[in-house]
Every structure is written in C-alpha cells, then in structure tokens.
Design a protein around this nucleic acid. Structure first.
Length: 814
DNA sequence: GAGCTGGAAGCAGGA
DNA sequence: TTTCCTGCTTCCAGC
C-alpha cells in the first residue's frame, strides 16, 4: 500500500451527545434540509487520480459521488471528473418537491433526495416528539426489536456506486455511516440501536434469527442471503450488471452444493451465485469504465427510483423483487438478537409479529424514512438486555452515538480504554460455510483483555466490539469480516450480539466488580464472501487481500451532564487469512521509528514469517504516490528468525533535510509477499536522537503482548490509527453529534478544501451545526459547544467514512 | 456429537 | 494465448 501520502493522524475528539434537548423546530429544520447539504458536502472531490493514493476521505467522497455520474464526467478521469461534475450534483435551490423535499436534477441528487422524502414533516415531528417525551439523560435502555422483512434489502441509494469497483481504497465501508441510516432499534443495554440486517450472510448459529431474516439482505445481496438473495434479485440491477462484464467474480458457483444445497436461484436469469457478472474488484480500466458508464448511470437512476418508490410507500414490496421479498420474509421473523443465557431471563426481544401493524409501520418509517433518526438514549442500566419494552413510537429512543467509522480517542480525562492483552496477530477467520474457528486468542495464550480505566462509578457499562479495518486508512468497520459471537463452555464472558449499521457488534459487560475489565473470549471472526460484499451497493472496498482486521472496542460513558463520552481503542492488526497468515511477513513491532538521515543503526523488527531471504525496503513516496526513493536495507541474516529480523537503517537519500521526513518500509519475502508498510521517520542529521528502545535490549519475545498496543515506544505499525486523547476532554466535547454523520453534514465541506483535511473553521462548523442540514433531531449544536470544539488547537475535522460531512472532530496530523 | 483446528483441494483471476 | 502463481472458498479429517 502506498503510505507516505497517507498521513497517519493522531487526532482526538470526543463525543458528547446531548440528547433530547433540542427544539423541535431546530431539529426539523435540520432534518428537512439535510439532504441538500449532504449532497453538497459530498461533492468536494479529489483531484488526484484514483490510482494514486489519496486520503481516505477523499476517496470516500469520490465514491459517494460516482454513483450516477454522467458518462461524460468520467472521461477526464476519476478524480477530475468528480470535480468537474460536482456542481451538477447540488440541488437546485428552487426545486422543491410537492412534499417539500428538494427536487432532484441528477441521478445523484435523486438518490439523495430519498432523505428528503422521508424526512418529511410527519416523520420528523414524530421523532421530535420522542425526543421531547424522553429526556436523553434519563432514558432507560431502549429495547426495541423489529422485524423488517424485505425492507432491509434496500440499500442506500446514495451508495449506489457502480464505480465502486474502481477503487479498493475507498473508505466507504459497508458499515460506514452511509448506511447508518438503515438501522433500527434493537435491544441493547447501552449502545446504539442501529441495526442493519445486512450483516453477515448466514449465521452459523441457527438460533440467530435476526440478520438472517432481515430482508435487507434479500435485496442487497448481503452475504447472509447471498447469493440467492443477492442484489441481483433486482431486475434493475440485473440489467445493469448484465451488461457490465462477463467476467465471473466469484468462485461461489464452483461448488455444486452451493447451487443446489444452499441456494436456489430465484430467477431463471439468475445465477445462483451473486457474482456471475463481475465483481467490483474487477479491474476497471478506463475503457470498461467509460463504456459502461451510461449503464451505470441509468441503472443507478432506476435503482434510486426503486428505492424512492419503496420508501415513500413503505410498501416493502415495492421495488423489491417478489422472490427477494419472499425470501426476506421467510428469513426474517425478527431481528431479535441472540443473547447469552444469562441475559435471556431478562426477556427476549419480541419478534416483529408482536408489534401491532401500526407500530410496525411506524418503525419502518423510523428506520427507512428518517435515515439518521434512529435515536437511542444511552441506557443507564446496560444489563437489562433484551428486556421487553413497549415498542410504541414514543418509546423509541435515540442512540445519538457516534457511527462506527468515526475515530474516537482511547482516553479522555480520567478515562482510558485500554487493551491490556492484545490478540494474536493471526486468527484464521471462518466462513459461514465452516464451523467456528473459535475465539480470538492472545499471543501468549488466553484471550485479549480490555479494561476501562478511570471509571469509578458503580454502574456497569457496555463494551462494544466490532471488527475494524487494519489498512492505512482510518479505522472503520471491516466490510468483509464480522465479529462472531462465541458461546460454549469455554467462554466465560457474557456477550450480546447486535448489529449497528450493517456491522455486527458484540456487546460485553464491563462490570465495576471486575474492575471494568473484560476478557474477550467470546469473539470470533467471521469472513464474508468477497463476492457477496463487493456486490453490495455502495461497497467500494475489495476483499481480495484485504484480510487484516483489528478488534475495535468502544465504550460509552454516561456523563453527569447527560451526555455520553465515547472512547475507542483498536487492537493490533490480525491477519485473518489462512494463506496470508502462513506466508506473508508481518511486522508487529519495530525497535525504532525514527533516526537521523545518516542511518546505520540496527533496527529490530518483530513479527511473523520472516525469512533469511526477507528484504526490507525503505520507500519514500511523493504525494502523488510515486516512489521518490527506494532502498533495500541490509539485513542480518544470521540474526534472522521467523519472528524477528535485524535490519540496518539505510541512509536517507537527502542528508540535508531540515525537518523530519516520513518514509515507510516493508518486509518482502518474495514477489507478492510483502508486509504492510511501516512508518519510519528520518530526522535531520543534527537532531539529537531520542533513544526509544535500545536494540540491544530488545527482546523479540516481547513483541507480542500488551506493549504492542501503543505503550511501547515503537509499537505502532504504519497503519495503526490509535487515537490520542485531547489534552482536555472538555476542550473538544461536542454535544449533539449526529448519529449518522454521513448524512448529517455537520459542516459543509469546501469544495476547494484540501483533499486531506477539512478545515473546521469556526464559521464552517457553526454553520454546519446550525444548518438545517443536520440530520439529527434534537442534536443541534449549541454555539457555545461549537466554540469548545474550536478551542482545540489546529482543529480540523475529518471523517473517514463520510466524505460528505466530516464530523466535528479534532485532527492533529502526526 | 459438537466444536475447534489445521491442512489442503479446487477454482478463478492475475501476472 | 498459455502457463504459472496467488488468493479465495470450501471440504475433510483429526483432536
């Protein structure tokens, strides 16, 4: 992976969610005009060529805008086209639909207007009402459970990006906030209720009915239902895909049992597998792209129309192929979540059938109509899991928690969420067709351990765990891996499975009696078939060789003010592929991360799969991704061990640098057997060396373990994105963060802004907050709190998964 | 017998 | 165009 241009940021920000203190009018205004702003903010597009590395949010932005881009716009190249075309995607100010939603002028706009259609006044006021009825700080845990047959099959039309295959670098992960809108309340003690049914394809646990049954997967081709219920169930998509390419993208149909045993084609025109037409990972050349742009565009339009139709009518069947709908119904009796026995006595989530039709309909409204309106308070008593509650609309509460692809600090003020024991660097994930491969283990045996420090209250909290990415982009939920709940006699930790924004989240109690410490022995990793995920609308990542993940832990700490402080910490990368784990070199730790340009110092790398023939290549890249300098470092073959490698830092090409220069290096075992890039910084020759970790004292055996989390001097791999806490938690507290940042356009992104950083100027942020585009009811940002955000030095906002509207986060480039 | 684990077969795409 | 390599997915067998 490219690396130099991908800056590793140490940015901190804190979320505080002011729940329920919003005026209805302000919220309504925000809601109402959300869509247009969202669009606008999504428009700033990268100018770099897509083939060149670029900051992730830029790519995301590009992705968002690619969906229905006119063919002509692409001719000039990906990034350029986006820029040039962006103007066309803004809503016309004067175009208003009869229902008040802005009219649309382009497929792109049409898609986004979906929001407007459903952020209509009725829905809006309903939500406001909820907010008013239940003050956020006093809300009890929301325990809404919902069955949404067929409906979940729909995927965010805004993500309908046929160009998704163009790049594997997009941050538009399936679980990004883009899709936060497709979620519903769920029974959870403390966390967000965003549930998207489109999670893993087929649970290995038969009793786990929720995702399997969720119709979302029927349309989306979610792996859980795929391939029979792949997006291609849609005639629209069929026609679209059918003209794209004849290249098969998935080996899924290579097994007879796949055709006959598990899935039956629901259409004579359909391959039983989801990917007879070419996977998004197909390398799309300019020719193929241009040649199919028209089809993309038109299909995007049709898809968007389908979505709109389905949405506006709330008829689950509209726009959903009959077969898909049927499948969804068959499979989704409920979104009831599987609960550990310990929690089951507390009640189970009622199936959808328990809802009166009107309530069900209301929930459909909530989930689909109000993209970002799924509100859930932060429960004060997390362990009333699955406690049945009346699911009337008024009892539906807002989560107001940060989306899973938001970057959060690991510590703030007295609190620190820390991984005490890191997981092993290798854990072979299991496919749905396989049995579980057990829980993730720690390097030295046992299991990972996570602890929340500084929490002195007696109230238990919920630790959330999901599978995040481990690439050099910002952390976000991994599209191709999901956490898998492990149960059994060997599992001592109670857990609870939920789905947030298409991402499975394991919820684990953090109990004061356990010193807020949890042993993660209940979390396995499920691999989703690449072909299934890549075919999802809006999915731009590719699964191939995208096999590194991290365990991401989150905790939401209620504050006396009624707000919630969210912390997050990610584990070291875990290689999940069998083959990669066996062959690819993996650098877990390096004994130095900087040295003067003269080089010559021995650096010890620890990791896996090092060979005597392993080479260590130092690379400097230009911002455009070109290699400016590349040099092979000398390795000491005598000292080479499978898990450690001694390398001599090569002298930098320029001995006269006046400021540190960041380069990267990787270990190469062969042609395509390279490790991830690791950061290394060359210092000016006259800069005194800060001794970090003497190589003499270095013990490779210590490479694995808690120290590698970020506590040791140089544990951080290139792609690590551990966040540091702000100096003062109060300095960047942000109340009223949008639940679905991608939709909420906290601040309009200047189209001329740097592709890497979005300026969070006072004006911009204030405007964003006050903007009616804010999609979250009751989450308007008081001016004072906005100012607090601005108090953070050099504040810039960034949102990895949401190019449309970076969250009010502070970002401090490393 | 179920679950976990390691190994490998078979296929498809890419080099 | 062909061949080989690589990666993905599934299956099998042992514990």
């Amino acid at each position: 992976m490219t690396g130099l241009e991908d800056q590793e940021f140490d940015f901190d920000f804190l979320f505080e969610f002011n729940q329920g203190d919003e005026g209805a009018a302000a919220a309504a205004q925000e809601h109402y005009s959300y869509a247009p702003t969202s669009i606008g903010s999504a428009l700033p597009l990268p100018t770099a060529h897509p083939s060149l590395p670029a900051p992730c949010h830029d790519l995301q932005t590009a992705t968002a805008g690619l969906s229905a881009m006119p063919a002509a716009s692409h001719s000039a190249g990906y990034g350029a086209a986006m820029d040039s075309a962006s103007a066309g995607y803004f809503l016309s100010a004067g175009s208003i639909r009869p229902d008040g939603a802005p009219a649309l002028e382009s497929p792109r706009i049409e898609i986004t207007s979906y929001l407007g259609l459903h952020h209509n006044s009725s829905q809006f006021f309903h939500d406001v009402e909820v907010e008013d009825v239940i003050p956020g700080a006093k809300r009890s845990p929301s325990t809404a459970t919902l069955s949404l047959p067929g409906l979940e099959a729909y995927r965010d039309p805004a993500c309908l990006s046929p160009a998704s295959s163009l790049s594997s670098r997009s941050c538009n992960s399936e679980a990004s906030s883009y899709e936060s809108n497709y979620s519903y309340p769920y029974t959870s003690p403390q966390t967000s209720p965003w549930q998207s049914p489109c999670v893993s394809p087929k649970t290995t646990d038969p009793e786990e009915g929720f995702p399997r049954g969720l119709g979302a997967c029927t349309l989306l081709g979610s792996p859980r239902h795929s391939p029979s219920t792949s997006p291609r169930a849609s005639v629209t998509e069929e026609s679209w895909l059918g003209t794209r390419t004849s290249r098969p993208a998935s080996p899924c149909n290579k097994r007879k049992y796949s055709l006959n045993g598990r899935q039956a084609p629901y259409s004579p025109h359909h391959s039983p597998t989801p990917s007879p037409h070419g996977s998004p990972r197909v390398s799309v050349t300019d020719d193929t792209w241009l040649g199919s742009t028209t089809q993309y565009t038109s299909s995007a339009i049709v898809a968007a129309i389908n979505a709109l139709t389905t949405d506006s009518s709330l008829d689950l069947g509209d726009g959903v192929p009959v077969k898909a709908r049927k499948t969804g119904l068959e499979h989704s009796p409920s979104v009831a979540l599987k609960v550990e026995p310990a929690g089951e006595d507390l009640g189970t989530t009622p199936p959808a059938s328990d809802f009166p039709p009107e309530d069900f309909s209301t929930f459909q409204h909530i989930r689909k109509g109000a993209f970002c309106d799924q509100y859930l308070s932060v429960p004060q008593h997390p362990y009333q899991w699955a406690k049945p509650k009346s699911l009337t609309p008024t009892s539906y509460m807002s989560p107001s928690l940060p989306a899973l692809d938001w970057q959060l600090p690991s510590h703030s003020g007295p609190y620190e969420l820390r991984i005490e024991v890191q997981p092993k660097s290798h854990h072979r994930a299991h496919y749905e067709t396989e049995g579980s491969r057990g829980a993730v283990k720690a390097s030295a045996g046992g299991h990972p351990v996570v602890q929340l420090h500084g929490y002195l209250e007696n109230e238990p909290l919920t630790l959330q765990l999901f599978i995040g990415t481990a690439d050099d982009r910002l952390l976000r939920p991994h599209a191709f891996y999901q956490v898998h709940r492990i149960t059994g006699k060997t599992v001592s930790t109670t857990s609870h499975e939920a789905v947030l924004c298409s991402t499975k989240v394991l919820e684990i109690p953090l109990l004061p009696e356990n010193n807020m410490r949890a042993t993660i022995d209940c979390a396995g990793i499920l691999k989703l078939r690449n072909s299934d995920i890549e075919l999802r609308k809006g999915e731009t990542d590719i699964g191939r060789k995208n096999t590194r993940v991290r365990l991401v832990f989150r905790v939401h700490i209620p504050q006396p003010s009624g707000r919630t402080l969210s912390l997050q910490v990610a584990s070291n990368p875990i290689e999940c592929s069998q083959r990669s784990a066996q062959e690819l070199p993996l650098v877990e730790k390096q004994s130095a991360d900087s040295y003067p340009v003269v080089g010559g110092k021995k650096m010890v790398l620890s990791g896996h799969n090092f060979l005597q023939d392993s080479k260590v290549i130092f690379v400097e890249k230009a911002p455009d991704g070109h290699h400016v300098w590349e040099m092979e470092a000398k390795t000491d073959r005598d000292l080479c061990k499978p898990n450690s490698l001694v390398v001599e830092i090569p002298p930098f090409r320029n001995q006269r640098i006046t400021s540190p220069v960041q380069v990267s290096f990787y270990v190469c075992n062969g042609k395509r057997k390279r490790s991830q890039h690791q950061h290394f910084t060359y210092l000016p020759a006259n800069v005194p060396v800060i001794k970090t970790e003497p190589s003499d004292d270095y013990e490779p055996a210590s490479a694995c373990g808690p120290a590698s989390q970020g506590l040791s001097p140089v544990p951080r791999p290139y792609y690590s994105q551990q966040l540091a806490a702000p100096p003062d938690p109060g300095s960047c507290l942000v109340a009223g963060f949008p639940l679905c940042p991608q939709r909420s356009t906290v601040m309009p992104t200047p189209r001329s802004a740097s592709p890497k950083l979005h300026d969070l100027s006072a004006a911009a942020y204030t405007k964003g907050i006050a903007s009616p585009a804010h999609c979250h009811l009751g989450l308007a940002q008081p001016a004072g709190e906005v100012a607090a955000v601005q108090d953070v030095p050099r504040p810039v906002a960034v949102h990895p998964g949401s190019p449309e509207q970076p969250p009010p986060a502070t970002l401090q480039p490393q």
